[in-house]
Amino acid sequence: MALKQLQLLAKVQLEKEEKLQAQFVQAHQFAQLAVEKYTGLANYRTDYIRQSQQRGAEGIASRQFNQYLNFITKLDQALTQQNMQVQQAQRVADMRRSAWLAMQKKRKALDLLIDKELQAAYVRVQKQEQKMLDEMATQQFFRRLQATEQ
């Protein structure tokens, strides 16, 4: 494959890699937000239970106690749902990270191929220049030899 084509392909792969990296960063940030929401909700639940226990120690009506229990049940359901969102967001972030790293690996392999091609081209040019210098030296030698013979 021609060097120009390889370089164009590397440019395209770099653009894809950057796009995949941006998608990973976005997914990772979303997962972090989901974790923060979960943590906030869990902390709120803990505080709410502590508060309800304090009020319960002071004595509350059974109706109010049932309201506390119902709300805690709703908080537990919300925590379960948020935990599922955290897990889903982390799976998406992991998949996007894998895709980004796979593209990065392909691009690096292509960069290595380009480097090898450039090195091979450099060696070819050096050999051609050396051959040309050798020919010029040989021609000069024969000219001098003919000049001395005359």
Rank of each mutant, 00 (worst) to 15 (best):
L69R: 13
R63T: 15
Q13E: 02
Q150N: 14
Q21D: 06
I60T: 08
K4R: 04
T73K: 14
A102Y: 01
Q139T: 14
V123C: 08
R144Q: 10
Q146I: 06
Q77A: 05
G56C: 04
L9E: 12
R96T: 06
Q5L: 09
M132V: 13
L112G: 11
V86K: 09
V25C: 14
N70P: 05
Y48S: 07
E129K: 14
L145R: 10
T73Y: 11
Q128K: 11
A93R: 01
A42F: 02
A93N: 03
N66W: 12
L6M: 07
I49V: 09
D76H: 04
Q81P: 00
M95G: 10
L9W: 11
M103R: 02
N70G: 10
R97T: 05
Q88R: 05
N43A: 03
S62W: 15
Q150S: 14
M1W: 04
A109R: 08
D111P: 01
H28S: 12
A121C: 04
Q128D: 08
T138H: 14
L75E: 01
T80H: 01
T138W: 15
A27S: 02
L112H: 13
F142Q: 09
N70T: 10
K11I: 05
K108D: 03
R124G: 05
K106F: 00
E129D: 09
A42P: 01
A137M: 13
T39M: 03
Q54H: 07
E117T: 10
M136K: 10
Q150P: 11
D134M: 12
L118C: 05
I114P: 01
K127T: 09
Q29R: 12
K19N: 08
V86L: 05
V86E: 06
I114G: 03
L3H: 03
L41K: 04
A99P: 00
Q126E: 10
Q67D: 13
R97N: 15
E36D: 13
A31S: 11
E129T: 05
Q150R: 15
L101T: 08
D76N: 03
A10N: 08
Q150M: 14
K11P: 00
D94T: 15
L79M: 00
D111S: 04
K127E: 11
K105Y: 00
R63P: 01
A57D: 11
W100C: 02
V35R: 11
K74F: 09
Q77G: 00
F142C: 00
